[in-house]
Design a protein around this nucleic acid. Structure first.
Lengths: 403, 403
DNA sequence: TTGAATTTGTTTTTTTAATTAACTAACATA
DNA sequence: TATGTTAGTTAATTAAAAAAACAAATTCAA
């Protein structure tokens, strides 16, 4: 994604310059604080070239000089620090019924948060909510805005910034980027929420170990995976790579709206969880959820999680069932693609080991034995902000070439 | 693969130059014959820059001036033609028991062929056969050799040119590239045979339509897939992406040497085919293969193919069975990765539609309905030379940046 | 038939970004 | 205090693309 030069284009001096500028800024971002001399050693550019680029970065206020370092002999180096508050960015997560937005600094640290409940609004009304969110955040910005990053559910064409289809929002072929770019005169980037979550995982966590490929499965109301290959989001031919919600995991399972029986989403999402728990709790007075169901309340995943944390033993088997279906769906991909790093995110991830263990077992059971001990399946540690972080990564990557 | 500049390195003028030189050569290769003026328009480089690079290419004999073109007005342009016979390359296919090699020109046209039957040789003895093949081809070369490209079975680390493991050849951690490079003083490139077949499919056929992703499943004695993502071979974390031979497709199936039951390879390879046909033919006097089996002969896939072409109706159901297992294994990957273009190659591909139809049915049956009509499953038209072509592509790509 | 217009390809000049080399600054140490 | 070392800047050099100017070969129109 950080490519300045594509293989099917001519190369120019300007691209060389741009590349090196991004490269240097990235190094400062990563090794903050660092001296010009160290940058020269690290990048293999000359000190003269580094000085030249750094002057420009100082001019743009992207970095600052923050004092001298002590070394044994010689002139002490001037330390440069990445100016994480030089710009701000707006990030949105439209994946759930509660639209969430945040104002962030250049390190993806949240400065402000806003939420708007969709309350069933769809189509253009939902777009209005997006605009309202951005306006609120824009007002609170205290620094020039670098851009807007958005994670939306459904199939997204990220190059044009078009939401091809988001069923819950009733969006089809919605040119959201152009729409917002015109409205706010800021660069706008969008991608599917699970794809962004995977990008966040890669850039804010896994990237450190030289990992270049990973799959992140986001399990919430819907189920979707984000795939990182070679350090970039893999979109697929129709931009719906990772849309595993409708993989059939049980041909005898419940009928899905998509026309198939036993889709992963009908068997393992939080909705499926709530349905199954309702039944079990209704017929099981020992369950802590029994009373709730009796009172005609719909079970939320929060309530189920709370019951689970309170050691309600009726929850575990249902989580396990979800985990096995998830693991079954993942095994094929992980095996065939030879991917070693798998992460689980989304609201379901809060169940932790209870969900993770059956996933692990099922993946291992179906994998080529020689490869099993290389597979690492983990709960993502990035929590509820993972999509916002991914959206930030998108903006930071395109605008500055960092992260 | 054609990247001169990586995101984690500084950019230099030399890289710009190298990039543009490859870019121009590639254009000449693709649009042969073409004038300097047209190249300038196509690449957006100035005529002066084009002239400069073209002089170097003429100097190296990579292109020739081949006369003038007629246009309406103005000075007639001088046509440049790619010199496909300026260099030659050696390509090897070690995937079957019959090692095959060829001498090719720069367009992947076969000039000479050699074969050596392994006759059960393994380990170092098999390496000797590789060397013998190359020596034969080297002797017949009439032009400077550009390099050696090799497709081997098993898991291959292509950056170091190490065969991590090839069970049939009893090779483990074999540094084949260094070994051959020292022996022949030529650049050597290797990769897994199915991965190379996929590369060949991409570069010599599908690339024309702007396709950037494809999966090619090679079904022969073994079963392996090659995966092209974004125009490049996707290797996976352990270089074994596409090793789908040991995906479990029937938990109640035959025990495999890998320890699992009902691996794809035990259920759908030509070996599985031969075993199943033997049984059926033995108990079925109407089969054309009945006599052969009666005589104690082992059925070859050639014999089965011949029987099939002779309208032996006992063959079709067995092929169909293989096809369904193959389709089942492919559906998950194709769906989850949103890949539209799937090719079947290998000796089993000779059964054509008899194999293709059940694969199609099974993939469609298991895929998300909205995506089905976008999926294209075809038998590769590249035939038996597909691995040799892939090996050539590897060399051409790394050495010249073309194809 | 001649000259204007057009297109190609080369040559010359200019620009730009990196490198090289030389230099100044600031420190430790002997 | 002199010397060596490292940091950072400045000036000169180099390389590659772009811009501009030009020469060559053709068509077309008067």
């Amino acid at each position: 994604m950080n490519k300045v030069i594509s293989a099917s284009q001519k190369a120019t001096r300007e691209q060389t310059k741009e590349h090196n500028k991004r490269f240097i800024l990235k190094m400062i971002y990563e090794r903050d604080p660092i001296s010009r001399a160290d940058l020269a050693r690290l990048t293999k550019l000359t000190r003269a070239s580094i000085s030249n680029v750094v002057s420009a970065l100082l001019e743009e206020d992207m970095v600052s000089e923050v004092g001298l370092a002590k070394k044994s002999v010689g002139k002490p180096p001037t330390l440069l620090s990445f100016n994480k508050d030089a710009r701000q960015l707006i990030t949105l997560d439209l994946a759930s019924d509660m639209f969430r937005g945040s104002l962030m600094n250049l390190r993806g640290e949240v400065l402000e948060r806003v939420k708007i409940s969709l309350g069933g609004r769809r189509g253009p009304a939902a777009v209005e909510q997006v605009i309202a969110l951005i306006e609120q955040l824009q007002e609170r910005a205290t620094q020039p805005l670098l851009g807007i990053g958005i994670g939306t559910p459904g199939v997204v064409e990220p190059y044009q910034g078009v939401v091809k289809s988001a069923i819950n929002l009733n969006w089809t072929e919605l040119p959201l980027r152009d729409l917002l770019q015109e409205r706010f005169s800021l660069p706008v980037y969008l991608a599917n929420d699970a794809q962004l979550a995977a990008l966040a995982q890669f850039l804010f966590s896994s990237n450190k170990d030289g990992i270049q490929n990973l799959i992140l499965v986001k399990v919430g109301r819907g189920i979707g995976a984000g795939i990182i290959f070679g350090g970039e989001i893999f979109f697929g031919d129709g931009f719906s790579a990772g849309e595993i919600g409708h993989v059939v995991v049980d041909p005898n399972g419940k009928l899905c709206t998509c026309g198939h029986n036993g889709c992963l989403e009908t068997m393992a999402s939080t909705r499926a969880l709530a349905e199954q728990m309702s039944q079990i709790a209704a017929s099981n007075p020992s369950s802590r959820l029994h009373q709730m169901v009796r009172d005609g309340e719909t079970l939320t995943s929060n309530a189920i999680l709370q019951a689970h944390l309170d050691r309600d033993f009726t929850v575990q088997p249902v989580i396990e069932r979800s985990g096995r279906f998830l693991g079954g769906a993942m095994a094929h991909i992980v095996g065939a693609m030879n991917i070693r790093h798998i992460y689980i995110a989304g609201s379901m991830a809060r169940f932790g080991d209870a969900l993770l263990e059956p996933i692990r077992q099922e993946v291992f059971r179906r994998s080529y034995p020689a490869l099993i001990n290389q597979i690492e399946i983990k709960i993502s540690e990035l929590g509820a902000d993972i999509v916002l972080l991914g959206a930030a990564a998108l903006v930071l990557n395109f605008e500055l070439g960092i992260v």
